[in-house]
Design a protein around this nucleic acid. Structure first.
Length: 567
RNA sequence: UGGGGAUUAGUGUAACGGUAGCACAACUGACUCUGGAUCAGUUAGUUAAGGUUCGAAUCCUUAAUCCCCAGCCA
């Protein structure tokens, strides 16, 4: 069950927002998620989305989705669609509030003109290299541009001509006139506009001067009436500039524009995976994974394909909290929330990954019957189904041992176990191939135990899942493990490639798993539990005659742990 | 030698001058027609040193460590 109905935790941002509401500093709370349409979203973005959406919802406010599309060199329309799909899938509804920063370009341009007229911005003819060279360093002040003292008229003229397309890319920029000696480098006459003759995915060829993030972002927030602009920690250094720009516009302005409040929170790292755009792209380009939606990736499309439920992702995000400490979350916490949710929500089914034939010698030849099974022991409303049973079955190879150790409760020669929802069977014999491997297990069954209980009250230590050989559906099953073998994938030897820790066994494909009929006939994205094995999700690669399942997450397995400890 | 942040069990996160709590992980045990789930329990923490105070994770001072910033990226 999802935890979403619990009272929300009061993190430091929610306290600030609540305070601003109580003191009348803001009316309706308005937040936003402002992705740049140049990449797929990952679980880290989900935190930002969930904080912004969650706060808007809790305070009965508004949540906006805004594309921060100020750099046509990097942005593509395909991401605009993919991002909307992911945000919607997460369950964050922006309603009518879909915006594009580029729709405000006209307004931003007018504001820029205002700054020029106030002598707070100037056109700089220096090239990028010179600007960088004169910015100074972390410990040394920068130098003023020789163009810093241009007249307002000249600046106005030049900026207008920049916009008109008179100058080639990179020849001029508009800069804010602040302080070339400021300790915060962002305040050393930051660039506001650069010339880019490029086709914009949303505005086409309308513009050839494009605003920089710092100039644009606060204005976007202001235009939309954002009250709390919640972003990640690396923008802390930019807040003084965010505020400076809006204050500069409002200086001597009869009608001041809205001034949102920026608050920063920490991103997080996840063990055994990477989240940076660059690294994710490299994994794909080098063929280490199949694409952005590879189920081993922490991208939202990857998690979706893997079978992660948005409800469970939200529970996870809630559980990690909101603070200013950049921590590393252990992947088992993410998995815990998937199990917790799926345990309530996923119907059970029986499937055998590594089939071993089991023949019931005293069961009549050619006979079969149907046995009733519970669809979800955690949810009575899920009802029951019939599972076909016969003389020849498949059981999990790991569920049989010819020479079992003490703590092994499952099937072994002479031992009686229960076949789930079916009968008690006792192992009487095994058949081996020439290599000495067990290829067939022979048993007898007790007809009196039909349904799974013995009338005489005798107990068995184990219950096995099984599939009738005559009725089995063949399926491909993909098992996933961590993409990296180390908690911190980037922990590599000096000089070693960063992919050195890629786990060669992160994907195991089982081409010939056997499933009960109820596992067939579903739509991609259908989630279920294979009893005793884990949660699985139907992959889009599935065809009509061959289902393909991804293992979302395994069940906890104390026997596996036991086994590991033993040797 | 600059500016901005951070630091509470293994990992996250609460405690807002008054009993350091919760979750995950780990470990016991109970129960079980999933070695799942559930239930009960155990281990384990305030970066350091001073100071203020009846009382400090919390306030002050100093130090240590870590993160971010020198794009015409966001």
């Amino acid at each position: 069950m999802s935890n979403e109905t619990d009272t929300p935790a009061r993190d430091f941002i929610r306290e600030i927002v609540a305070d601003d509401c109580n003191t009348g500093k803001c009316g309706k709370v308005v937040t936003r998620f402002p992705p740049e349409p140049n990449a797929y979203l990952h679980i880290g973005h989900a935190k930002a989305i969930w904080i912004n959406y969650g706060i808007a919802r809790e305070f009965n406010g508004e949540f906006h989705l805004r594309f921060d599309d100020t750099n046509p060199m990097k942005e593509e329309a395909q991401f605009i669609h993919a991002i909307q799909e992911d945000v919607a899938w997460l369950g964050c509804d922006w309603g009518e509030h879909l915006y594009f920063a580029s729709d405000s370009f006209e307004r931003m341009y007018e504001y820029a003109l205002e700054l020029i007229r106030k002598g707070l911005a100037y056109v700089d003819d220096q090239d990028a290299e010179t600007i960088r060279a004169t910015r100074g360093s972390l410990t040394e002040p920068g130098k003023n541009s020789p163009f810093r003292q241009r007249s307002v008229e000249e600046n106005l003229d030049l900026f207008e001509r920049m916009k008109a397309g008179e100058f080639p890319d990179g020849t001029r920029v508009l800069r804010a006139k602040i302080d070339m000696a400021h300790g915060n480098l962002n305040l050393r006459d930051p660039v506001m506009y650069r010339i880019l003759h490029a086709k914009h995915p949303h505005r086409g060829d309308d513009w050839c001067v494009y605003p920089m993030y710092d100039w644009a972002h606060g204005l976007e927030d202001s235009v939309e009436g954002i009250t709390h602009s919640l972003c990640s920690l690396e923008f802390e250094n930019h807040r003084p500039l965010y505020d400076w720009f809006i204050d500069a516009i409002n200086r001597d302005r009869p009608e001041p524009i809205h001034h949102p409040r920026q608050i920063e929170f920490a991103r997080f790292n996840l063990t055994y995976t990477v989240m940076s755009k660059r690294l994710l792209r490299e994994l794909i380009e080098r063929g280490i994974v199949r694409g952005y939606d590879d189920p081993r990736l922490p991208t939202l499309c990857g998690l979706r394909r893997r079978g992660y439920a948005p409800e469970a992702i939200r529970d996870f995000l809630k559980s990690i909290g909101v603070a200013k400490f950049v921590g590393t979350i252990e992947t088992p916490l993410l998995e815990h929330h998937q199990r917790q949710y799926l345990n309530q929500a996923a119907p059970r089914v029986m499937g055998v990954l590594n089939p071993l034939k089991l023949v019931i010698d005293n069961y009549p030849d050619g006979q079969s019957e149907e046995l009733e099974a519970i669809n979800n022991p955690e949810d009575e409303s899920a009802g029951v189904r019939n599972v076909p049973f016969g003389k020849v079955l498949y059981i999990e190879r790991e569920d049989f041992m010819e020479d079992p150790p003490k703590k092994f409760f499952r099937l072994a020669p002479g031992r009686e176990v229960r076949l789930r929802y079916a009968y008690f069977v006792t192992c009487t014999d095994v058949v081996k191939n020439s290599a000495g491997e067990v290829v067939e297990v022979h048993c007898t069954y007790d007809p009196a135990t039909r349904g799974g209980d013995a009338p005489d009250g005798r107990k068995v230590k184990a219950t096995l899942h099984w599939v009738s050989a005559d009725h089995a559906v063949d399926a491909e099953v993909r098992l996933y493990d961590h993409l990296f073998t180390k908690e911190n994938p980037l922990d590599v030897e000096e000089g070693e490639d960063w992919t050195a820790n890629v786990n060669p066994e992160s994907l195991t494909i089982i081409p010939d798993a056997k499933l009960e009929p109820a596992a067939a006939g579903h739509e991609p994205g259908w989630r279920c539990q294979f009893e005793r094995l884990g949660y699985f999700c139907l992959d889009p690669d599935a065809t009509d005659d061959k289902p393909v399942f991804n293992r979302t997450v395994g069940l906890k397995d104390t026997w596996a742990k036991q086994k590991d400890k033993g040797g």
